[in-house]
């Protein structure tokens, strides 16, 4: 509980010099003439912490996991170089559709987030937000060296080194960048993982939420968003 409070306190807008003007706490006069305080970050967004939703019935869950595994909806968010190999994946030669992989344009409907390479700090913020907008169960697939240990940008001031510090990753694909075949192999591996019931990244994120948040806030200096945005 105390940690939770901590995080909320850290989010006090006045401490944050990067906070955008419209997100700062302000006084608003209502139609009845009364003044009241508005904290946009709290008031305009959902303030519910993510909850662990444990699998219920083993047999049913197995069936559902099978469906989940065979219907991977990928968010088309190219965070880095790797995104150049995603279009070929959907092109005639590789045709990922036959593996149940489909692209969705909105995070709400997607179940797989592909971190396709390095994450610049600015993108990391969006990636976190995107991840949180996705509905569980959700999976993260990380492409390329950059996501494992920084890759060729290990010494860059603007790219993170390890994705697993900020988001729970299910499958890594080696390569710089991985070929479409490797990506397909990644999907196959992800399917196996989901079917085995191991792909519980969303629950892990909810469990270790404070740890993840602390890591994220260490990097993203203008934490210009609420702690939880679902």
């Amino acid at each position: 509980m105390s940690e939770e409070q901590n995080i909320n306190q850290n989010n006090e807008p006045k401490e944050d010099k990067f906070l955008a003007e419209e997100n700062k706490i302000r006084l608003v006069t209502g139609p009845d003439g009364k003044q009241f305080q508005v904290n946009p970050l709290d008031d305009y967004f959902c303030d519910k912490r993510p909850q662990v939703v444990a699998p219920k019935n083993k047999i049913i869950e197995k069936f559902l996991n099978w469906a989940r595994a065979e219907s991977l909806w990928v968010l088309g968010f190219g965070t880095g170089c790797g995104s150049i190999e995603i279009p070929p994946l959907l092109s005639p030669r590789f045709d990922a559709f036959r593996y149940g992989v489909q692209m969705r344009p909105t995070p709400r409907q997607s179940s797989v987030l592909i971190i396709s390479g390095y994450l610049a700090v600015k993108t990391l913020k969006r990636a976190i937000r995107t991840y949180e907008q996705m509905q569980s169960p959700k999976y993260v697939m990380a492409l390329g060296s950059c996501t494992i240990n920084g890759g060729m940008y290990y010494d860059s001031y603007n790219t993170i080194n390890r994705v697993d510090q900020y988001l729970p990753v299910d499958v890594y694909v080696a390569g710089c960048m991985p070929r479409p075949e490797a990506l397909l192999a990644g999907f196959v591996k992800l399917k196996e993982r989901i079917k085995a019931g191991n792909a519980e990244g969303a629950n892990e994120y909810a469990e270790k939420f404070d740890w993840y948040k602390a890591n994220q806030k260490k990097i993203i200096k203008n934490w210009n968003m609420p702690d939880y945005n679902w």
Binding site: V53, L64, A67, R68, S71, D95, S136
Partner: peptide
């Protein structure tokens, strides 16, 4: 998909998608 020289989704894909959508654990 054939016009694009692909093979496309498995024919049972819509049912899977539907099951998956109803099986999502959270929804806001």
């Amino acid at each position: 998909a054939r016009v694009a020289h692909r093979r496309g989704i498995p024919i049972y894909q819509p049912w899977l998608d539907l099951i998956k959508l109803y099986a999502k654990r959270t929804s806001i």
